[in-house]
Simulated assay, not measured.
Amino acid sequence: MGKVTPEEIADKLAKEVLENQKAKRIKVRTLIGHFDYEKRTEENATRITQLLADRNILLNPSIMKLGETWQLKLDDRVYLSENKEENRIIETENIEIESYDYKSDKWFDDILTKHFRTEKEVENKFILPLLNRLNYSDDDRFDGMTINVANGSRSSVLEVDFALSNTENENLEGQILLVVEAKKEDRLYKQVELDKAQKQVKSYAIWLSCRFGLVTDSKTLQIIDLFPRINEMKVIFECKREELKENFGTIYNLISKKSLTKYYEKLNEN
């Protein structure tokens, strides 16, 4: 009898998830062992992630090497779950903006007349204050996160401007809630540049096991579902800088730390 292939192993794991109709919890060590790998490498982490994604199975949190270290220990557990239609929707009702009167926040008015001269200024003077208002702390934010993707003799390193997590929630340890792609002011005015930025943030989705992305040049802001299907993405919200204040409640409901924590906790229960 021939050796079981990685594709057949992925088929078996996917079948278990689909038949049980709920997330399968498994140690990283056990998952790697299923694929008959003796040790964890960037290449086999890439391979496992891709094989499961090809079968519409989400792997949360990511088992990839992020930055210079493995974010998960071998005895940490991950969830394998089906990418169901109902799991693609963020429940936005009744998310309370905690003790913050954003309608009286002068920052929203002040930025209307600002000119950010570089991409770094967009990051420091627009994105970081916005993330703070979405309740992400400095500890929740990984600036310039690299993702090491290896496939045989080919390898590449992707760099994410900002990767956000909830460092206070032990149940979501290692889970990336949101990725942010920054561009120089007015860069996204051209559709070709907007398309390029969307594809750039989409390229992080599978490897980070992250569903949602924010793309902005400070003038335009888009929130994107990065993973409705393997090769698809969907803009679920868009506004201009001058519309930011009136739409902040919607933005908070979609990508705040509180909202996305609730989303991923529910995902792992299914």
Results as ranks from 00 to 15, higher is better:
His34Glu: 08
Phe35Leu: 10
Asp36Trp: 04
Tyr37Lys: 09
Tyr37Ala: 05
Glu38Pro: 03
Glu38Cys: 05
Glu38Ser: 09
Glu38Ile: 08
Glu38Asn: 10
Thr41His: 14
Thr41Met: 12
Thr41Asn: 14
Thr41Val: 12
Glu42Cys: 13
Glu42His: 04
Glu42Ser: 13
Glu42Val: 13
Glu42Arg: 12
Glu43Cys: 06
Asn44Gln: 12
Ala45Cys: 15
Ala45Arg: 08
Thr46Tyr: 08
Arg47Leu: 14
Arg47Gly: 06
Ile48Gln: 03
Ile48Cys: 09
Ile48Trp: 03
Ile48Gly: 03
Gln50Ala: 07
Gln50Tyr: 09
Leu51Thr: 11
Leu52Met: 07
Leu52Phe: 04
Ala53Gly: 15
Asp54Trp: 03
Asp54Arg: 14
Asp54Met: 08
Arg55Ala: 06
Ile57Thr: 02
Ile57Cys: 04
Ile57Pro: 02
Leu59Ser: 05
Leu59Thr: 14
Leu59Trp: 01
Asn60Leu: 14
Asn60Val: 15
Asn60Gly: 02
Pro61Gln: 08
Pro61Ala: 08
Ser62Trp: 12
Ser62Ile: 12
Ile63Phe: 07
Ile63His: 07
Met64Trp: 06
Met64Asn: 10
Met64Cys: 05
Met64Tyr: 00
Met64Gly: 01
Met64Pro: 01
Lys65Leu: 06
Leu66Phe: 02
Gly67Thr: 12
Gly67Ala: 06
Glu68Pro: 02
Glu68Met: 05
Thr69Gln: 05
Trp70Thr: 01
Gln71Tyr: 11
Gln71Thr: 10
Gln71Met: 11
Leu72His: 04
Leu72Thr: 03
Leu72Val: 00
Leu72Cys: 04
Lys73Arg: 01
Leu74Tyr: 12
Asp75Ala: 03
Asp75Met: 07
Asp75Cys: 05
Asp75Tyr: 10
Asp76His: 14
Val78Met: 01
Tyr79Leu: 12
Tyr79Met: 14
Ser81Arg: 10
Ser81Pro: 01
Glu82Met: 14
Asn83Lys: 15
Lys84Glu: 10
Lys84Asn: 06
Glu85Lys: 13
Glu86Ser: 11
Asn87Phe: 11
Arg88Phe: 02
Arg88Ser: 09
Arg88Trp: 03
Ile89Arg: 13
Ile90Asn: 04
Thr92Arg: 00
Thr92Met: 00
Glu93His: 02
Glu93Ala: 04
Asn94Gly: 01
Ile95Leu: 00
Glu96Phe: 02
Glu96His: 01
Ile97Glu: 00
